[in-house]
Design a protein around this nucleic acid. Structure first.
Lengths: 346, 346
DNA sequence: ACCTGATCCGAGAGCGCTCTCCCACCCGCG
DNA sequence: CGCGGGTGGGAGAGCGCTCTCGGATCAGGT
């Protein structure tokens, strides 16, 4: 059926244009040193034959692959329940394709996968890696750094030995949390509670820190621990209501938990926002818009985050010519601003 | 900092083991014809040097890449708002890595991207493609098929000239819809309305067809058109309520629209499920569980779908040796069963 | 007119691997 | 004890490209 037509080679193009392989190569790769009439003839031959360079042959000699790995650690299914992943991927994809790089996706679940990923990276198939490590003490980040590939992390990683020189992109979780709490204070609320996320993730820790920055001397009983799931939001809300019935506001570390909290508040006859104001985090759509009432929340530009990760990495990869600059001048972390989205819940 | 140590080559391993390159190659690729004492010596040399084959050099001669492209067309952002994409990707990823294949992700948005994708596929970087085309009359599928690569589609594609021989994996949208409607009838409902999805997608068409299979002679005014968004669900529900106030059940083509319908029903003082029973489609979490009341819906095993797509493709790719079998015996479509998940809304 | 230098292009090596020969060796048989 | 078939292992070509190097060409200066 589909006859596998042998693809034209550099040689063929050269023959047709009546030049040497070297010249065709020069034209194809856009290097100067080929005068106009000749260059045009080559370009025409390329078009006529529909020539496309063989990437394998090329990287065999250049040692570049124009490909980067995106590694997503997802021991839990939860990662996949939210739409962030896709957004981030899209940001990355856009930036990558704009620079003619391919995106090789590596999804990992367990230790066995880690080994595989390590081998893959060491195997020199890609020029760099973009890594999403969600959990503190995840061995993956270190493992990857040790592979010696240029790497950018999504979300602040937490290395045991903070060696510095780790580049990453993250949202301003702490600042966003501060904004959320200040907004509640601005509404005249004084007993602002907090439902934390899973504290084995830096984002949850940072949001909690942001809350404490503003509510430094608040009653510690105003803080209940959640794990980012809706059920944990409900549980935490009940807990808070039980031990601190007088609370007049809640800042949940994500929208899912905020949605859970909302349900419990309604159950208990508390009106939102009149009796208790609620603020979430993420602006996870369509959830945040669909709660009752619609959720006031902290938005992070997740797609931009992906784009920046890719940009950072690509810039690193271009530094091939200057070995001296490679060691110093590394931009450690890049923090993206967040925006408070005001809906009806606060 | 990270000294780029030159990776050991086949040559180096051969030297260390005291054999020829060919022998090492044989051992590494698991082909027989190397006797045990020698083979062991080679394996040891491989370990000691930490040898990893250079994929570029390998595919240069084998013309295989052990990589498949996953192409996602997403002219609209909507695709990214739902978690399906990620699930499917995970299914694909699992199957692929189990067979030592890489996943190259290609996200497209507009015509320009189509050209790029076409070139990429023609460029022979991957052995096959997995394609998600969401819209009828999307030019991408044809374009990809023309590239001559083995391809499997996610969701029933809609070619103008139904040439057959197109392999795809899809959920049993029609059967699932029938189940949903029959369930409503089983509840004693008689005036069952339907909110369609965007009818430029085969999934929406099929679900609509399923509804009509069961409600063949229903009042056509019981059908309102939506486009899979929550807002369209609300709009459609209002429309239905307006022109057919006596309806006692609604089958929405997805959960997002069902959630919108639920809100409108509440607004109008209709109790769910007492006055109006509601069934959705997708079992999109966490939405489906979080509505009030929790949604009865049709679940599709989205991860399995991804896995099957990959499996189908890989099987196709293995058929390299037998050119005769390639033309015939192609499994056109694979339809996955759906399950009705009973919650409180119906 | 001759030399110098810059510029353009071609020849050829070689990237790391696979795979087809082909030779050497082992065994069993006559 | 020699011969043939079978089998294990090596030699070497070649996949399609890049890139260095050197030769040719051309211009300008003296």
């Amino acid at each position: 059926m589909t006859e596998t037509v042998p693809r034209p080679t550099l040689e063929a193009v050269a023959a047709r244009a009546g030049v040497s392989r070297a010249t065709v190569s020069r034209v194809v790769n856009g290097s100067d040193g080929v005068r106009e009439p000749l260059a045009e003839r080559v370009r025409q031959a390329v078009d006529e034959l529909g020539y496309v360079p063989n990437q394998a042959a090329r990287s065999l000699v250049t040692k570049r692959h124009d490909a980067v790995a995106v590694i997503v650690a997802e021991p839990e299914t939860r990662v996949f329940a939210d739409p962030f992943f896709a957004r981030q991927l899209r940001g990355i994809s856009k930036e990558l394709t704009a620079h003619d790089n391919q995106l090789v996706l590596l999804l990992t679940e367990d230790r066995a996968d880690h080994v595989r990923v390590g081998r893959y990276l060491a195997g020199g198939h890609v020029d760099g890696a973009l890594v999403f490590s969600l959990h503190i003490d995840d061995p993956l980040p270190e493992l990857i750094q040790r592979a010696g590939l240029p790497t950018v992390f999504g979300g602040r990683p937490d290395f045991n030995g903070g060696r510095g020189g780790v580049s990453y992109v993250d949202s301003d979780n702490r600042g966003g949390a501060r904004d959320a709490v200040r907004h509640l204070l601005g509404l005249g609320r004084r007993r602002v509670a907090h439902i934390t996320g899973a504290l084995d993730q830096t984002s949850a820790v940072d949001r909690h820190d942001g809350y404490r920055d503003v509510m430094a001397d608040a009653d510690p009983r105003l803080v209940a621990r959640g794990d980012f799931t809706p059920a944990s939001g409900e549980r935490a809300m009940r807990e808070l209501l039980g031990r601190h019935p007088g609370l007049d506001a809640v800042f949940a570390a994500n929208d899912l938990m905020a949605a859970g909290a909302l349900r419990v508040l309604r159950e208990h006859g508390r009106r939102v926002p009149e009796d208790v104001a609620v603020v979430g985090f993420d602006d996870m759509l369509p959830i945040a818009e669909q709660t009752e009432p619609p959720l006031t929340t902290v938005r992070q530009d997740i797609e931009e985050m992906g784009r920046l990760m890719a940009r950072l990495l690509l810039r690193d990869l271009d530094h091939t010519g200057t070995p001296e600059e490679t060691s110093g001048a590394r931009p450690d972390g890049l923090i993206l601003p967040t925006t408070l989205i005001r809906r009806s819940s606060a």
